[in-house]
């Protein structure tokens, strides 16, 4: 199955300027692995060296933050959208 991945403006430069891309996978982690394989420049931006989610990004399955689902093991279905957005914080 194929899932749409939406990229924030900040990361599009690593993906030929695209705002959305599609990759196969049955979990969020598989989709993100396919994404960073296709666009290696995104690797360190989205996932840490040990393969977990980078703390400076939030990843969503549709409207839900995957940290509150099963993180990278969250199952995806055809037609789902995975969105990556920066964590926005300050003081």
């Amino acid at each position: 199955m194929s899932v749409e991945v939406r990229l924030p403006t900040l990361l599009r430069g690593h993906a030929e300027g695209r705002s959305t891309v599609s990759f196969p996978g049955s979990t969020v982690g598989e989709v993100l692995d396919a994404l960073v394989t296709a666009y290696p420049g995104l690797a360190g931006q989205v996932l840490t060296d040990d393969g977990s989610l980078h703390r400076f990004v939030n990843v969503y399955l549709n409207d839900d933050d995957v940290r509150y689902l099963d993180r990278l093991d969250t199952k995806v279905n055809d037609g789902d959208t995975v969105s990556i957005l920066p964590a926005v914080a300050g003081g």
Binding site: Y60, A87, V88, G91
Partner: peptide, 15 residues
């Protein structure tokens, strides 16, 4: 003293 934009509010706003 700190803020964090609620991630769910962000994804909804972005969409």
């Amino acid at each position: 003293k700190l803020y964090t934009v609620d991630p769910t509010d962000f994804v909804r706003a972005d969409r």
